[in-house]
Nucleic acid binder design. Structure first.
Length: 183
DNA sequence: ACGAGGATGCTCT
DNA sequence: GAGCATCCTCGTC
């Protein structure tokens, strides 16, 4: 079993499925919430027309060009926040979009933040809201014990691979990975 | 269960 | 000015 750091330093198509089952924890305002990651997508920088980094660095996507383990948070449709974990060598701008999880710690707080009791952490926007992740966390480092931290978990038995959701370019690439994960 | 449509504001052309 | 890596509500089946 590779270390989290080794996974994040490797190829994005290997890192994405390897993140399934691992935990993502936030500690915001002293409150801890955590999920087991169940749904991700790979984006491969300049090699991927669907990536925000396809046309090179801009103020928005700058975090993607940094070190692996960086948290790239962007605003989606003017309303929601979505987060990625930067993967691969610095400057490549590959990243894994976190699209869903299963609550493991702090479900009550997630209910409060979401304003409802169901669909707490399914979908990238909902996941960020449940964990309290916003644009101010863009650039945080998830390797280590910061505000947002990636942790070990249980490797899922089976992983489903499909096309990515909600994109109009590179729709043929099967770069979405989904699994039933243990809590 | 599933699909259509609107909200909403930033980013880049 | 167009186009979003989305989500919710309400309609229909």
């Amino acid at each position: 079993m590779s270390s989290l750091r080794a996974i994040l330093e490797g190829p994005v198509l290997e890192a994405a499925p390897a993140l399934l089952g691992r935990r993502l924890r936030s500690r915001i305002g002293g409150v801890i919430t955590e999920v087991a990651i169940s749904e991700v997508e790979a984006y491969d920088g300049a090699n991927d027309p669907a990536s925000h980094a396809f046309r090179g660095p801009t103020p928005r996507n700058l975090t993607m060009f940094g070190k692996p383990g960086g948290l790239y948070v962007y605003r989606s449709y003017g309303i929601h926040w979505c987060m990625n974990i930067v993967v691969g060598e610095e400057g490549r701008a590959a990243a894994v979009l976190l699209r869903g999880g299963v609550p493991t710690v702090g479900a009550e707080e997630m209910v409060r933040r979401r304003g409802r009791e169901d669909h707490l952490t399914d979908g990238p926007g909902n996941l960020c809201q449940a964990l309290g992740v916003t644009g101010e966390h863009d650039g945080e480092q998830v390797l280590g014990r910061g505000v947002i931290s990636l942790r070990k978990g249980t490797t899922p038995a089976e992983i489903e691979r499909t096309a990515r959701i909600g994109i109009s370019k590179a729709t043929e690439s099967q770069w979405r990975f989904v699994a039933a994960v243990a809590t």
